[in-house]
Design a protein around this nucleic acid. Structure first.
Lengths: 156, 156
DNA sequence: CTTAACCTTGACGTAGGCGTTAAGCCGCGC
DNA sequence: GCGCGGCTTAACGCCTACGTCAAGGTTAAG
């Protein structure tokens, strides 16, 4: 029972705000990356702000890490578990269960972290190389200009 | 006329060393990402160490930047231009031509640089978030453990 | 009650990046 | 000189991540 005050976005608005197409939103739903949104009587999907954030998150993961949607599903699923954990803060004393979930979540996030860490390192390296290269180019350009100064373009 | 002392790798070895399949190597050649290698009499491709490095470079660009092969082709092409520039260091006085090439190369590399820069920034941000999250999880885990201490597992 | 804008579910299409045969040469050790 | 592993081209296949109709239902405004 999602707070009726909060679920108000139609698919078109979500699409516009997130920059993805409606097709993509339905596709993500099919693939389990977005939980099926609530619907109004006629069947129109009604999204929440939460969903918008989720879409943005998915896109960041896609763009930055370049991982497949299947993997992204794993990641967002793990995060979902956490929401549950936080919500049902002590329903009964199934502590072991919670611990297992938490451990799983930690695993997933550590996985993400190491990926991100590795990638940032490699990218820093690449960035440095590119910077070096630009410097070299500047030098060359200067040399070219000096060369031209000595050897005039259209000698009389 | 590529130095005959240097061109000695067959496609299988290149594949093994770079971690891509032979199909991929031929595919890259088709797409113009790898220059057609020299062949031995029977038609077997003969690659150089240069080629190996090139493949590794292509893969880094793919993995890190996640850009399409067409774009990667642009990038490596621009780099090729530079090799030529460096090689024919002053064949004649076509200085303007060289300047144009150099400017083009600078453009390409600056493009790469800004992409890499933006991505690294975003990834640093993501990294920080993940770190925060891991800390939160640790706290939760501790809370769970303390909770268990107070409420023994199997009360007599 | 009509109409325009928005939405629904299929279902087929597509571009990129290779994988996978198939059918047949090449090279080299014995 | 033959046999076997490595290589060749050609062609079709496949998966991902959507794009693009098509045919029709829904909503809100007037």
């Amino acid at each position: 029972m999602p707070d009726p005050d909060e679920a108000y976005l139609q698919i078109g608005e979500v699409a516009e705000r997130t920059g993805v197409t409606q097709r993509t939103l339905r596709f993500y739903e099919e693939k389990g990356l977005l939980r099926p949104p609530t619907r109004m009587d006629g069947g129109f999907r009604l999204y929440s702000e939460q969903d918008v954030k989720r879409v943005e998150h998915i896109r960041r993961l896609q763009d930055l890490l370049g991982v497949a949607l299947a993997e992204i599903k794993e990641m967002v699923d793990a995060e979902e578990v956490l929401r549950e954990l936080r919500a049902q803060y002590r329903p009964d004393s199934a502590i072991d269960e919670k611990r297992r979930q938490l451990e799983r979540a930690i695993d997933v996030v550590q996985g993400q972290y190491s990926i991100v860490k590795q990638k940032t390192e490699q990218m820093e390296e690449m960035k440095a190389q590119l910077k070096e290269r630009l410097k070299t180019f500047d030098r060359w350009m200067k040399e070219l200009n000096e060369l031209e100064a000595k050897e005039p373009v259209a000698p009389a």
